[in-house]
């Protein structure tokens, strides 16, 4: 009898521990702490997660996301997070040293607590040959500024929803509901934006830095010239003179740049050619009008349409 009781007790303890472990695996303390590299991802994560998620970002939208000086508080923010969301590729050159400082493998590439949002994105401008910095600071995996295309916004949202469901199955219904609402709203906007942009298909637009190819692809606009002679290289007088000639020859009406780039070159070209210089948002919160992801795309595309109309 003693042996039997002993075996039964052990079995019971094992089962209880196993159940408890499963319970721990299935339940997570709310709100889920999500830390993202960019504010646009934090906004989408908050939209999908609702009250179950608390989202914050490392890069302030006021600054160029290529050059962020991560602070100790950013290291701690990731250490304490349940999920780290990033762009993948080589947009955030500061991500590697930041994750080195975080020193937790679950946030590193392939880790269980991170999402590389570039997965599933149809990348543009993937270099086909030898990559050299003689071409400026080009991106070896393809252009990483994919989130301003609203169609990619849907892919990003699905990624985030899937991961949230994985780490918090109890919230699956809410995440699915929020995802559907987000997609419905974005799809409706996509239709209206496409209609509004239709008359300007194929028109030439100048960019400051090569960070708009995905938005241009969505808007069916052409962007072949940039204020930066090569990615990451500030413009010189000779290049500005060449641009002036190009703008006049092609009657280019619009120059777009993110708000964090210097305004002098755009102002110079405006004075010389009358081109409309638009300061647009690359990320949520960059300008007051870009309060959330849909509002950001809305603002950017409406500004472009208005500039063409005028």
């Amino acid at each position: 009898m003693k042996i039997r009781n002993f075996v039964r007790s052990i079995t019971a303890i094992v089962i209880i521990l196993a159940c408890n472990e499963n319970a721990n695996a299935d339940s997570i303390e709310l709100p889920i702490k999500v830390c993202t590299t960019l504010s646009s991802y934090a906004d989408i994560a908050k939209t999908i997660g609702g009250d179950r998620v608390e989202a914050s970002s490392v890069a302030s939208p006021r600054f160029n996301p290529h050059f962020i000086e991560a602070r100790p508080s950013d290291v701690l923010k990731i250490k304490r997070a349940d999920l780290f969301i990033h762009s993948g590729l080589d947009l955030e050159a500061w991500r590697g040293p930041l994750l080195d400082a975080v020193a937790k493998s679950e946030f590193r590439e392939g880790g269980a607590k991170q999402i590389d949002l570039s997965e599933g994105i149809a990348l543009l401008e993937v270099p086909s040959g030898q990559v050299s910095r003689a071409e400026g600071d080009i991106h070896m995996f393809g252009n990483p500024h994919y989130w301003p295309d609203p169609r990619n916004g849907i892919i990003i949202a699905k990624h985030i929803a899937a991961k949230l469901i994985e780490i918090d199955p109890a919230g699956a219904a809410e995440y699915t509901k929020n995802l559907n609402s987000f997609m419905d709203a974005l799809n409706a906007k996509i239709q209206s934006w496409s209609e509004a942009l239709k008359p300007y298909a194929g028109k030439e637009v100048i960019g400051y830095h090569n960070e708009w190819p995905y938005l241009m692809a969505f808007a069916k606009l052409s962007m072949t010239q940039f204020v930066e002679p090569k990615p990451g290289i500030p413009p010189g007088p000779q290049h500005l003179a060449e641009l002036e000639t190009f703008i006049k020859a092609k009657s280019v009406k619009v120059l777009i740049q993110a708000s964090y780039f210097p305004k002098e070159a755009g102002d110079y070209l405006h004075d010389k050619t009358g081109i409309t210089v638009l300061s647009l948002c690359q990320n949520v919160g960059e300008l007051p009008e870009c309060g959330n992801y849909i509002a950001m795309i809305d603002y950017d595309l409406n500004q472009i349409v208005k500039a063409f109309k005028s």
Partner: peptide, 13 residues
């Protein structure tokens, strides 16, 4: 999606 500028559409880096 326009494909003119897409060099490696859908491929993972």
């Amino acid at each position: 999606r326009p494909s003119a500028t897409t060099l490696a559409s859908g491929t993972s880096p």
